[in-house]
């Protein structure tokens, strides 16, 4: 197997007396969908937050393509090609899809007008149409505020926004939690397309069936540590649940 694209090694994170992560490892390989699963409180979200720069680890290191990196802020993570789709979407509901896609990365007009701060909405709209099209997101009205879209479309915009800018890794924290069947299928399809574009996708999900359906690999957290790793093909729900609930010995533990 190729070298890991992104690695977390021995991450420790405490919130007061609560030990969220206690020496947690995690690997992401290029061109894969890796599912990160675990029971509530296992530390999945905390780990993602640390890798995405919204939280800082107390101990441990993060390695990207063999180099140790410091992810001090979400902004730094973005610069490194790491994007996150948050559980609560993090879209500006009153802005349209294009404005959301380019939020914080606006395209300015050429020349003097651009220097004066004028936006090039035309270019951004065209770019947005292309980005949404690539992911099979169909927005009937691209100029409509995101709030007017259905839940699935909104989620698709959030995913498209991350994917459009991610060159290395996209984290998806429960991307289908609030969605119906059809919309879920569409978002999962989008996740597959992320991988097909050569970007690694990390999927947090509670839905084991879904995980087995699309993940190339599965890593299991329990009580702030990685306890098991599976290949997506061949793993069973029983194995996953057993790993999550402590039915098998901890990986690397004595």
């Amino acid at each position: 197997m190729a070298d890991p694209l992104l690695q977390a090694r021995g991450i420790v994170k405490n919130y007061g007396h609560v030990e969220a992560l206690r020496g947690c490892d995690f690997d992401v390989y290029p061109n894969e969908i890796v599912a990160l699963i675990g029971d509530n409180g296992a530390g999945k979200s905390t780990l993602i937050k640390i890798l995405a720069g919204t939280e800082q680890a107390d101990e441990g290191e993060i390695v990207l393509e063999g180099h140790r990196i410091h992810v001090g802020s979400p902004f730094e993570a973005m610069r490194l090609g790491i994007e996150t789709v948050y559980q609560d979407l993090a879209l500006a509901p009153d802005l349209d899809g294009s404005a959301n896609l380019y939020l914080g990365r606006e395209v300015m007009m050429a020349g003097l007008l651009g220097k004066l701060g004028f936006l090039d909405n035309k270019t951004m709209r065209a770019g947005a149409r292309k980005a949404f099209g690539e992911l099979g997101v169909d927005l009937q009205n691209a100029q409509s505020a995101v709030a007017n879209l259905s839940g699935g479309q909104r989620q698709s915009v959030a995913v498209a926004r991350s994917v459009a800018w991610a060159s290395k890794v996209v984290f998806l924290d429960e991307p289908t939690a609030a969605l119906g069947v059809v919309q879920t299928a569409r978002v999962l399809e989008t996740v597959k397309r992320i991988r097909d574009r050569g970007v690694a996708a990390v999927l947090i999900s509670h839905n084991m069936r879904q995980v087995l359906e699309i993940a190339d690999r599965i890593e299991v957290l329990r009580l702030g540590r990685r306890v098991a790793r599976f290949e997506g093909k061949g793993a069973t729900i029983e194995q996953l649940v057993s790993a999550m609930t402590g039915g098998i010995a901890e990986e690397g533990a004595a």
Binding site: T54, A90, A92, P93, D94, L103, R105
Partner: peptide, 19 residues
Amino acid sequence: GRYTVAIGSNQEAARRAGI
């Protein structure tokens, strides 16, 4: 102007977008 309405629409989203 875009940042102004974006902050009003969802301050957290604006912050996460690097604004």
